[in-house]
Amino acid sequence: MTPLTGYLLVAALLFSIGLAGALTRRNAILVLIGIELMLNAANLNLIAFWRYGPHPEALTGMMFAIFSIAVAAAEAAVGLGLVIQIHRHAHTTDLDRMNRMRG
């Protein structure tokens, strides 16, 4: 197993764990945690390909990962703001009970 393969397998496992969390948990915040794990798995792939790719001095994968971290931070802030507002409105964060679009 080459180092790159090891990192890719870890990232695949991390992505699957995040996906399982996002699909099976009932709490909306736990779903956001799962999405964060999936984004981090993608970042690990980008950094690993940058490190073992043919042109690390071009910094492409590194830049992609840094911008991805910034976008993920914005996503977390807006997502958690939405969860707080939904909790204030519906008094629950249980996704199985949020089954109508009408307020």
Partner: peptide, 30 residues
């Protein structure tokens, strides 16, 4: 939850298969 778990397991199976199957052509130190 069972459907979600099955989907996640399927996604991991596909990703792991793709990584291991294509390990030969991946860049990196031998």
């Amino acid at each position: 939850w069972l459907t979600g778990l099955a989907i996640a397991a399927g996604v991991f199976a596909v990703l792991g298969w793709a990584v291991l199957e294509r390990a030969r052509v991946l860049p990196g130190p031998g």
